[in-house]
């Protein structure tokens, strides 16, 4: 089985990134068990651990589906909002 490379899929999508104004913010030192749910569930693979096991999240590349909000909105997310008008993903096909 090939290991999925989600970043390679996201590069074909069109995004307007709102630099410095993330619409989703992860809490500091999130509960690892909650984080693990998002590592598996986020379709954009934006919840990642590095080689040292440190947790990382970047809202650029977000497909705005709301999966993380539904799973962990109250536990490890400090903020979940839609991107400001006209920002974020723009589907050309949908």
């Amino acid at each position: 089985m090939t290991r999925v490379n989600v970043d390679a899929k996201l590069v074909v999508d069109k995004f307007f990134v709102d630099e410095g104004n993330p619409h989703i913010v992860l809490k500091k030192s999130p509960d690892p068990r909650e984080f693990a749910k998002l590592e598996k569930a986020c379709p954009a693979g934006l919840y990642k651990r590095d080689a040292n096991g440190a947790m990382h999240f970047d809202s650029a590349g977000c497909l705005e589906c709301g999966t993380c909000r539904i799973l962990c909105g109250h536990t490890i997310l400090e903020k979940w909002d839609y991107p400001t008008g006209s920002m974020g993903v723009m589907y050309r096909y949908g």
């Binding site: 290991r3 999925v4 989600v6 693990a36 749910k37 598996k40 379709p43 693979g45 539904i70 799973l71």
Partner: peptide, 16 residues
């Protein structure tokens, strides 16, 4: 989504 913890792999990996 309620089964996410039971899943043996990530959703993007399922698609792959």
């Amino acid at each position: 989504l309620h089964n996410i913890e039971a899943a043996g792999k990530s959703v993007p990996q399922m698609l792959e």
